[in-house]
Write a protein that binds this DNA or RNA. Sequence first.
DNA 1: CGACGTCCATGCCATCAGGTTATGGATGCG
DNA 2: CGCATCCATAACCTGATGGCATGGACGTCG
Lengths: 306, 306
Amino acid sequence: MDVDTRLLRSFAAVAEEGNLTHAARRLFVSQPALTKQIRQLESQLGVRLFTRSRAGMTLTAAGRALADRVPAVLVGFDQALQEAKSVASRAARVLRVGFLAGAANEATQQIIAAFGDRRPGWRVEMRAAPWTDPTAGLASGDADVALLRLPFPGQDSLHTKVLLTEPRWVALPVTHPLAGRDHISFRELWDQPFVAAPADTGWWRDWWLATGEREGHPVTIGAVTDSGQPDDWLTAIANGYGIALAPESAARYYARPDITYRPVSGVSPSQVGVAWPVTADTNPVIQDFIRCCLDNTPPPHPDRMT
Amino acid sequence: MDVDTRLLRSFAAVAEEGNLTHAARRLFVSQPALTKQIRQLESQLGVRLFTRSRAGMTLTAAGRALADRVPAVLVGFDQALQEAKSVASRAARVLRVGFLAGAANEATQQIIAAFGDRRPGWRVEMRAAPWTDPTAGLASGDADVALLRLPFPGQDSLHTKVLLTEPRWVALPVTHPLAGRDHISFRELWDQPFVAAPADTGWWRDWWLATGEREGHPVTIGAVTDSGQPDDWLTAIANGYGIALAPESAARYYARPDITYRPVSGVSPSQVGVAWPVTADTNPVIQDFIRCCLDNTPPPHPDRMT
DNA sequence: CGACGTCCATGCCATCAGGTTATGGATGCG
DNA sequence: CGCATCCATAACCTGATGGCATGGACGTCG
């Protein structure tokens, strides 16, 4: 009796959604494939996990029991793998710093340099993460510590400190009617099509669409950038599929002749923060790095630690 | 990053053996297959887990970290699946009783009947287990409670009670020179070839070869029965591949014209016991069944509970 | 009341992961 | 110096798995 974790993850998704078709979409597989996976899991266990009906998939008693335990198992599973990665990097004296494009800014070089002084012999490995992973590799254990944008989904299971706050601006094609304006009110953008993050980023996507600051006004999605890479995103904007909110520093880091950045009033600012797993609280190397981050960004730092 | 548990089990085996070839044999796969599995695990993690050398496979620091955590993860994994099975059977009011061929004897019918009286509405499902699984399905969660032979490997992680004790006899082909004897001393069998259980049953195999009662005299293996089914085993004996120790009751339950059973002195007796998972201590239905077992086998029961 | 939408199941096909056997290279041993 | 041991590689083959297209059941709506 050996069950692939993939089956358990599929099971968990179906159990949560209560619906094969939706779960299939979320897992990026076809619905028949999921049907087969669930049937396979059931036959391997010799147990009916769902009762099928027109209304969807409902858990049986056994399915409920399994669904209650699976998440913890999967977490334990992932943690073991992450731990191995992290031990490997520590043994090699490598600090893996994940960062979101746009979160590593002017201060980054000084941070790296300061860390190099404090920990000679250690090497810093900067790893760019796509926006599809707002934890910049912490969630998957590919990074020991991360520079990223707050707030983000999953923030509660990590520890974070705010490094700096910057206003959100808007990125527009140079040909856009509003491109010439010195300043724009967010209300004027309500009916504009936006270039959005993929749906599976949850409310991270919503936050960058500022759905909470539209007073109920619906969002128009002009395009979705699946890759989570800045180039894709900028190209979509330049091609006129839509506009997007972006941190002010993007104007410096992602300047292109076909894109204009303009200040916007009426949207909350974005914050750059440093984040680390709870287990790294006692890791002196990572704590040193965090210290370097705090020392090399403009004070005051509100002591916000989640 | 999604890793098959099979890879982790393979990893655990290699880590434990320190040797690909041996681990491959233990896992019943070819050595190249294991090579690939380990390499795949390493590449999925992006981490070297072993240092290869002429002497075998040695864990790296990261490998050690993983090896320390993997067993607990796999146990949690299996427990979740077992729990689902057990909930399913409880919901259907089915008590799954695993038994080892030869462990369900004269008393079994009375036990079932008594349980039927005590729990009307419940159905007992008897499941025969091969000797390759001395826990009779408890380990895999395929049984809620088991009738089996003591001692057996893995006994410490279960709870057991002895039901009865019976001497071990020897099963011989009728044509065997010793077949006519009324009584045989074990010492006379030291040089006889034996039909043995598969190697992966560990010391369970040794116990039925009585290696501890040979005063260092080596065992001769005439054949191995892989299937763990009585028929295979008896046929091997009848064909003259070897002889074997068997509980006295086998003479009644597995009488064949080509096999003779004879008493043997100088070997410890075998015990029939009832076993259940630790988690079943609080399950009233299973406790009822255990009660029925004790009430329907000859007292006194030494209160041996492991 | 029939057309349609929503679910899950099934059949067929293409693909690829994973296994096996055979073999090679490195190294220690009698 | 042949031999045994141990891991890696190569070539091949089978079966699992996913995708597409489609079917059947059932509720809903015009």
